[in-house]
């Protein structure tokens, strides 16, 4: 039973707590991410949803004064166990940030290859890899003529897709997306959502979003966070059609948030 669950669930958070200084921003989250599916995390701002996914690749602790406690199993192995190196965790669990953050000092091509270079990995055919990742992130047609331009020269939506390509190049097992569309216009947002559709089935994806419509469109499962707690978690259809918790319903119907 346990082993089956570890197979079905790529990432399992068990009683996960997080603090910023003295403020307790995540209060014992226990929640599983289903392998090769998309899980959306929604909730009003300040509810801890971003903090939660940042705990899943140990990026939370990067902010000074921040710390996390609890268990996060990645393929059954606790990434918070002593002796586990955060660097190796992040190599397997990629992340796309709220604001597109391509490296401005690198070209588009080098941005895609940045993760490999940082990890000292070599590929036989970097050009093919660049093309594959950019195709996967639906950017290839737009940038194939300007691979040697700076990553900062692209539009916001293109930059975000470049960041996704950069993450894909490392072939992570899990991709965490922290409100990836909040800085983008509707057309760019639609492209990213399409992309998430393409990626499901290959990667385990967790996406934090402000937009309930987006959650409904892209995800298989949805979790509702409120004040650092997980209020409700289930498959997206049932959460949106018949939420069992009144607070979820209030949020979904726009009574607060």
């Amino acid at each position: 039973m346990e082993a089956d669950d570890d197979k079905r669930y790529k990432v399992r958070a068990i009683d996960l707590h997080a603090w910023f200084g003295t403020s307790h921003s995540l209060k014992g989250i226990t929640m599983d991410l289903v392998d090769r599916h998309v899980t959306a995390i929604i909730g009003p701002s300040g509810c801890g949803k971003s903090t939660f996914i940042r705990c899943l690749n140990r990026m939370h602790e990067v902010v000074s004064g921040a710390r996390a406690e609890g268990t996060v199993l990645l393929d059954g192995e606790n990434i918070y166990a002593s002796g586990i190196d955060a660097v190796l965790v992040r190599r397997r669990v990629g992340m796309v940030f709220q604001k597109p953050n391509p490296f401005p000092t690198m070209t588009i091509r080098d941005n895609v290859l940045a993760g490999l270079k940082l990890n000292g990995l070599r590929t036989r055919d970097p050009d093919a890899l660049v093309e594959r990742c950019l195709r996967q992130s639906a950017l290839w047609e737009e940038v194939k003529e300007q691979l040697h331009k700076s990553g900062a020269s692209l539009s916001g939506g293109q930059q975000q897709r470049l960041c996704i390509a950069r993450t894909l190049a490392l072939e992570p097992e899990v991709i965490l997306m922290d409100e990836p569309c909040s800085a983008l216009d509707p057309i760019a947002t639609a492209k990213i959502e399409e992309l998430i559709h393409e990626l499901r089935g290959k990667y385990t994806i967790a996406i934090v979003t402000h937009s309930m419509q987006q959650a409904a469109r892209v995800s298989d499962f949805t979790a509702f966070f409120y004040l650092g707690e997980l209020i409700e978690y289930g498959d997206t259809d049932s959460i949106f059609t018949k939420p069992s918790n009144p607070r979820t319903e209030d949020y979904l119907t726009g009574r607060f948030g």
Binding site: V87, R91, K99, N101, F103, G115, L118, N119, C163, L170
Partner: peptide, 10 residues
């Protein structure tokens, strides 16, 4: 954000 991007790539 750039630091975080690099760290998130391992």
């Amino acid at each position: 954000t750039l630091r975080e991007a690099a760290l998130a790539l391992g």
